[in-house]
């Protein structure tokens, strides 16, 4: 009962917000790139996780759009964004984004992302530090820590319950069941398969980058690391690794939260990022 009500409540918020983000397809040197954006203020770019949560204008984008011009691009290979053929690695993704920012005339942005998006943001910031005003990274891989190895997501993705248990602190919550539903219609199956295909291209053979640590010193902007305290996919030790390599970076843990803070602890997550971005 509560479960249904909670799902309905999220659905209603989604309905209210979804009209706000303006969707455009940008031709980036022949590669169609889907971009949603809304709001006024300093440019704020959100790089999505491998869930592909850029396909809808979600309530948390709306919250940021009150103070910023929020840009939510869809990565190559996800949804209708092309250019996957040129993608083999996280740095290829970062290069795609420097081209996109050039095309949009964005000289300097507040840049952040969750999970895969956070890793791309870090890679972008170490390559083009002058283009990043502030950087935030949430629950992102990138390192490899021997005593806390990343579990093999590809082993369990066919099992929705196991996937929920890996991604959420409370896998039985209504939001967990909404984000990782038990029944996939064809459209959602195709979307999820395509998303996992992009992730596999990027991390199958090596789910970390040994050059990330040695290069992160190039990041000089204010940096915030946000981690679900109970992230079982990319544990907080990975946030700690980012913190050690970026001068002045701060790591904030969100209690009662797994790998996807934007869904599991939305309000707290939005506020932490907003405070950091506005400071």
């Amino acid at each position: 009962m509560w479960d249904t009500l909670n799902k309905l409540r999220y659905g209603a918020r989604l309905l209210l917000s979804r009209g706000h983000g303006q969707a455009e397809t940008i031709d980036l040197h022949g590669r169609p790139t889907v971009l949603r954006h809304a709001g006024q203020g300093p440019p704020f770019v959100y790089l999505h996780s491998s869930l592909g949560e850029s396909m809808l204008w979600l309530p948390f984008f709306d919250a940021w759009a009150r103070n910023f011009h929020v840009y939510v691009p869809t990565h190559p290979g996800f949804g209708q964004s092309g250019g996957f053929e040129l993608i083999d690695s996280i740095d290829d993704m970062a290069f795609h984004y420097v081209e996109l920012f050039d095309a949009l005339g964005l000289d300097k942005v507040i840049l952040g992302g969750v999970s895969l998006g956070g890793w791309i943001a870090a890679e972008f910031a170490l390559r083009w530090p002058e283009r990043v005003h502030k950087l935030w990274i949430a629950d992102a891989p990138g390192f490899w820590i021997d005593d806390q190895p990343l579990p093999d997501l590809f082993r369990i993705i066919h099992d929705r319950a196991q996937t929920r248990a890996l991604l959420f602190h409370e896998p039985d919550s209504s939001i967990a069941r909404l984000v990782i539903g038990d029944d996939l219609d064809d459209e959602r199956f195709l979307h999820a398969y395509q998303a996992m295909t992009v992730l596999a291209r990027l991390v199958w053979e090596r789910p970390y980058d040994p050059k990330l640590g040695p290069r992160l010193h190039r990041v000089r902007c204010p940096t915030l690391l946000v981690w679900g305290e109970h992230d079982r996919l990319v544990p907080p030790a990975y946030g700690e690794a980012y913190r050690r390599h970026i001068a002045g970076a701060e790591l904030k843990l969100i209690p009662g939260c797994g790998h996807l803070p934007m869904f599991e602890r939305e309000q707290e997550f939005v506020e932490i990022i907003s405070r950091f971005a506005q400071a």
């Binding site: 993705i157 064809d186 199956f189 195709l190 398969y193 395509q194 996992m196 295909t197 992730l199 596999a200």
Partner: peptide, 10 residues
């Protein structure tokens, strides 16, 4: 994932 096209996987 990616071993076949998404349509074939379905």
């Amino acid at each position: 994932p990616g071993y076949t096209s998404a349509r074939s996987a379905l």
